[in-house]
Amino acid sequence: MHKQGTMTRSTALSPETSPFPFDIRFNSSKAAVRQALAEVRQELAPLGLDIEELQIVELVLAEALNNIVEHAYAQPVPDDMITICGDHRANGLHFRIVDRGGAMPDGKPPLGNTQPISAEIEDLPEGGFGWFLIRDLAKDVCYRRIGTENRLDLRLAIALDWRE
């Protein structure tokens, strides 16, 4: 088994020019999430993804990261860093997001069911869409609490068949 990131790459992305795997570290704030998403877009640029694919990656990561900022770090811990690791494998883009904030309730992420759409405007949901979008758009979503760490793995089935 080769170490990740040193596997033979396609001619388009040689090991020397490949950005993968990459790590982005940032503190828990909504502004830092925005910046981190911009960095992810930059890291993914060499893949030449369709704009639609890039938008889906950004949306899924935004939902996962905003959840961490709003819930895991509901009580801010100033020195803690959130880390996103991205890798590109034959079956798509893999991301691991790690933080040291509070655990998910009951140790598992929300089911992310569709929000009921009420006929009454005043009853319409203003939230609860985030995990629905993650589960709808991402595959192999796996959350684990390991010691004091939250570890969320997910895969986006895009940029497939990049190896000859």
């Binding site: 405007i121 319409l124 949901p125």
Partner: peptide, 16 residues
């Protein structure tokens, strides 16, 4: 060119 679920929620809140 980008909206997330918080942005969507804010638009729903405005309608309400």
């Amino acid at each position: 060119t980008f909206i997330d679920s918080s942005g969507l929620g804010a638009i729903v809140a405005t309608m309400k």
